[in-house]
Write a protein that binds this DNA or RNA. Structure first.
Lengths: 342, 342
DNA sequence: ATGAAAGCGCTAACAA
DNA sequence: TTGTTAGCGCTTTCAT
């Protein structure tokens, strides 16, 4: 019994050449039905599994894509990866995951790994600590298809899939205005990350569109964490004129704010409104439930893969039109911001 | 300029043979420092990246492992994968992820994919719908290292990493007893999955150890979901003698129970105690915070990989001692079950 | 419809 | 210390 049968093994058993077996296995049109049958039968008897490594080396295609995320543990990215995986598998592609842990060094290592593995394409959500983009231009120079999702970079011209963060923030802020809150603050995120920058812009635009004066002291730069949310709330509540609502750039920050506000015996949403962003899982289970903006994570994953696949399949054609898919944010108004009945 | 430089390209530039370059790149001891230097310099000038596909074909090692999880979106598995990834990358291994979506068919497909990709080893957490294990014995027959984590199967003799579910359940139940609850029910999970079976056993043992009579009507078989948790609670509350505490086999079930109990204006933990299992992220953010059992997910991932690596590296040696790592569950007593001051 | 032969890029045994 | 040679398993022209 052969431990790992090869095409040659099958060929020998049938007194044909490896080429014939290869063709039979890949359903080549000019192979007789009888040989196909017999090849298939011997293959299954020998428990033959195709060797993709050999096939990849020869054909230059690995049917693997690489995905770099800041962390697989953050629900958002886990969910996007889920979306990527699902479509990828449908199309016969496998997915390699690499976590950058938000550092530039890991991100570079991830790219190196993927290039060495000769993946057919790469999907990246840029790390917080990444400023230098030479590793990405490197990928481009090697003509390996590359698509950014969520965390993009505008300096370098790479196709991307994002949601409209500006619009999401605008909707969130305007919702708080609609609910009758008068002094709306914003707990923002790291401004060099585009999504957070855009959310701040959306917040400011919503104020402006409603003739509300922007107050610098109503901005607190938080850091995607419960703790910084608490600090944000402490800051806001210490002001001479404290806000009566906060739009947080991200759900964990919103959660921290909620905890701090509750600790101060301020009632939510009656006296204080809160909106988050990201639709993390916990939001609908906390008390009060957290209003937030859903980012269509699974769809984002699916779209990212489809865009990448498109690039992979049309690599040769120089239709390098800069592609960009912008998904629509979906507001979820829950208890933390709803003081009017809908 | 060569798009993708190979070892031969470097060799030609230096008038040496590919073999020399290969050795220089892999730091072979018998290569002079000068040649190493020059090879490295030319390599970087040509932007050479090693072709792992070719290397794998030749060496028979891919430095890739495959991981099959029921779903990457469930926090528990995402977190384990995180642990796997971290150690794997440290050891120079890459990780392929495959989601079974709890179905047997996908699981088989995942195994096929991994065997075709010639991964060096496979890590699996068995799907809910899997009863037939021939695909696993198949892997074993091909001498591909295989390790189960969390969701194991006792019929087939495969090394595994699990936590002591029995003990966790015992601790959870006894804690409720300690807190003075008198009628403790159990919302269990699918019994053909070993972890849930063991948790039920642990529950029963704890009762017995404390001379509490087991009541069949205090068992409700839930289904790892908020909804089934609600149904469980509704069932328990409808009993002639309703319980005053529930140990749920899993956090989402516990959450459903909590929602239903709160909806009935029953105070937690004063009138009703709840314990979950899994330490899902939301538990510490809901009101009241959920007491639960932590499963050491990241550690589980790390241990799983280490065990697999050990098998990979000692493949030839026939020291096929059945390995099993059992991690210790860590109780987290929070508001939902603490009515005595600690 | 099938065979012959070459080669993808790398590594490793054997020579020198 | 470096070269020679062969081959991992598969695909793919070019023949027949």
């Amino acid at each position: 019994m052969i431990l790992r049968a090869t095409i040659s093994n099958i060929a020998k058993e049938l007194n044909v050449t490896p080429a014939t077996v290869s063709r039979a296995l890949s359903n080549h049109p000019k192979i007789s039905e009888k040989t196909k049958k017999s090849v298939l039968s011997v293959a299954s008897r020998l428990n033959y599994k195709p060797n993709k490594v050999a096939s990849s080396l020869r054909s230059g295609k690995t049917f693997m894509i690489g995905v770099i995320v800041p962390s697989a543990e953050i629900n958002f990215f886990g969910s996007v990866v889920h979306g990527i995986e699902r479509v990828a598998n449908t199309y016969g592609y496998n997915v390699l995951i690499y976590q950058s842990n938000e550092t530039y060094e890991h991100e570079v290592k991830g790219i190196e790994t993927f290039l060495a593995a000769r993946v057919d394409g790469i999907l990246v959500s840029i790390a917080k600590d990444t400023f230098n983009c030479s590793h990405f231009t490197d990928v481009r120079n090697r003509k390996v298809p590359l698509v950014f999702f969520d965390r993009t970079n505008n300096d370098i011209n790479i196709p991307s899939v994002v949601i409209d963060d500006y619009l999401g923030a605008f909707i969130a802020t305007e919702h708080l205005i609609d609910q009758g809150y008068k002094n709306i603050a914003h707990a923002s995120g790291p401004q060099h990350i585009k999504v957070f920058y855009d959310r701040l812009k959306g917040y400011r635009s919503a104020l402006q569109a409603n003739n509300i004066k922007f107050k610098p002291e109503y901005i607190y730069q938080a850091n995607i964490s419960i703790d910084s949310g608490k600090k944000a709330a402490a800051h806001f509540l210490s002001l001479a004129q404290p806000p009566d609502a906060v739009f947080a750039a991200e759900d964990f920050t919103a959660l921290g704010i909620m905890k701090e506000v509750k600790a101060n015996k301020i009632r939510i949403p009656e006296e204080f409104g809160i909106m988050g962003f990201a639709n993390e899982l916990f939001g609908e289970h906390i008390t009060p439930t957290l209003s937030t903006i859903d980012q269509q994570t699974v769809l984002m994953g699916e779209e990212s893969f489809k865009m990448l696949l498109n690039l992979i399949e049309h690599k040769s054609e120089e239709t390098a039109v800069q592609q960009k898919v912008v998904l629509c944010p979906i507001p979820l108004f829950r208890e933390s911001s709803l003081r009017k009945k809908l």
